[in-house]
Amino acid sequence: MKQEELRSWSIAELAKLSRVSSRTLRHYDQVGLLPPAYTGHNGYRYYTQPELLRLQRILLLRELGLGLGTIGQVLDGQADQLDALSVHRKWLLAERDRLDRMARTVGATISALQQGDAMSGEEIFKDFDTNPYEEEARQRWGDQAVADSKARHAALSAADKQAFMAEAGAINEELARCVDAGLPADDARVQAAVERHYRWICVSWTPNADSYVGLGRMYVEDPRFTAFYDKSRAGLASYLLEGITVYAASRLSAAGGQSTA
């Protein structure tokens, strides 16, 4: 075993090494995010290499904009540390490439302005990969919710993303079968499908009762989302909203967003 794997660092040493304050490290311990490897007879916290690697991932996810609660969920859901780090690295490289492309476009704009040249609309916005729904989401649910959602999705592996999209289709198919069977929104089978939908949403974002119902209303009010659901069965978006309304009232809290069952 390598010597570095055997050594430990005091909280003061880790604070200096990571440039994270001792106070922050103590807070991470208090909330269960980064417990020390052990506490010495002097009461000091000591950390070993696994804790340092976990702190690296915490700092990365903080850079992605996640809150501490969400970071804990992400870390606890990633059993394979090497695979998780590989996913994070791919995200960083992709983000670097995206920013490089945007920087080139801004550089071209600067050059055009300096030379008095005109740019087409396409050239001005070239390489600005914006999500058309993101600003709407920020207005509805706030910046933190959007940051958490983007970071959670970025942490998914390619296989996880495929499974995520496959589950969306499977949920819609089950809801369509419920429509065909004439089941009311509060039927156990419908509520089981809505439960799957809620868990599917929680992969990216954890809504509370009010925000989950608000999401369901958006499915009905926004033609873009209505088309996604209604392609499986006419009226499915409205049917899902009815199911969501029942589910939120009986299973979710108004503030915490966690299932009460």
Score class of each variant (00 low, 15 high):
residue 8 S to N: 03
residue 8 S to D: 10
residue 11 I to H: 04
residue 12 A to S: 15
residue 15 A to K: 02
residue 17 L to F: 11
residue 17 L to S: 08
residue 20 V to Q: 02
residue 21 S to W: 06
residue 23 R to T: 10
residue 25 L to Q: 00
residue 26 R to G: 08
residue 28 Y to M: 06
residue 28 Y to K: 03
residue 29 D to Y: 06
residue 30 Q to C: 03
residue 30 Q to F: 04
residue 33 L to C: 06
residue 37 A to D: 12
residue 38 Y to F: 14
residue 39 T to W: 07
residue 39 T to Q: 14
residue 40 G to F: 04
residue 41 H to W: 12
residue 46 Y to Q: 00
residue 52 L to H: 01
residue 53 L to K: 11
residue 55 L to A: 04
residue 58 I to D: 04
residue 59 L to K: 12
residue 61 L to M: 12
residue 62 R to M: 07
residue 65 G to P: 02
residue 68 L to N: 05
residue 68 L to I: 14
residue 69 G to T: 14
residue 70 T to F: 00
residue 70 T to K: 00
residue 74 V to I: 08
residue 74 V to T: 09
residue 74 V to Q: 03
residue 76 D to S: 14
residue 78 Q to P: 01
residue 78 Q to H: 13
residue 84 A to V: 01
residue 86 S to A: 15
residue 86 S to L: 14
residue 87 V to G: 05
residue 88 H to C: 13
residue 90 K to L: 11
residue 92 L to F: 08
residue 95 E to L: 08
residue 98 R to D: 09
residue 99 L to Y: 09
residue 99 L to E: 09
residue 102 M to S: 12
residue 105 T to G: 05
residue 108 A to W: 09
residue 111 S to Q: 15
residue 111 S to I: 14
residue 111 S to C: 11
residue 112 A to E: 07
residue 113 L to I: 13
residue 118 A to I: 14
residue 122 E to N: 12
residue 125 F to Q: 10
residue 127 D to C: 07
residue 127 D to E: 15
residue 130 T to G: 13
residue 136 E to V: 11
residue 136 E to C: 06
residue 137 A to V: 02
residue 142 G to T: 08
residue 143 D to Q: 15
residue 144 Q to H: 11
residue 144 Q to N: 06
residue 145 A to E: 13
residue 145 A to W: 06
residue 147 A to Y: 03
residue 148 D to L: 06
residue 157 S to W: 07
residue 161 K to P: 00
residue 162 Q to H: 11
residue 165 M to D: 13
residue 165 M to Y: 14
residue 166 A to R: 13
residue 170 A to Y: 05
residue 171 I to N: 01
residue 171 I to E: 01
residue 180 D to P: 01
residue 181 A to M: 06
residue 185 A to Y: 04
residue 186 D to H: 11
residue 189 R to N: 09
residue 190 V to W: 02
residue 197 H to F: 08
residue 199 R to M: 10
residue 200 W to F: 04
residue 201 I to S: 10
residue 204 S to C: 12
residue 205 W to P: 07
residue 206 T to L: 12
residue 207 P to V: 06
residue 215 L to C: 07
residue 215 L to R: 00
residue 218 M to C: 07
residue 218 M to E: 12
residue 220 V to I: 00
residue 220 V to K: 01
residue 221 E to I: 00
residue 221 E to Q: 09
residue 221 E to H: 04
residue 222 D to M: 05
residue 224 R to G: 00
residue 225 F to G: 01
residue 228 F to D: 03
residue 229 Y to I: 03
residue 230 D to K: 04
residue 230 D to V: 03
residue 231 K to S: 12
residue 233 R to L: 01
residue 233 R to Q: 09
residue 234 A to D: 11
residue 234 A to T: 10
residue 234 A to M: 01
residue 238 S to A: 14
residue 238 S to D: 09
residue 238 S to T: 11
residue 241 L to F: 01
residue 242 E to L: 01
residue 244 I to R: 02
residue 245 T to R: 05
residue 246 V to H: 09
residue 248 A to D: 05
residue 254 A to R: 15
residue 254 A to K: 14
residue 255 A to M: 12
residue 257 G to I: 08
residue 258 Q to Y: 14
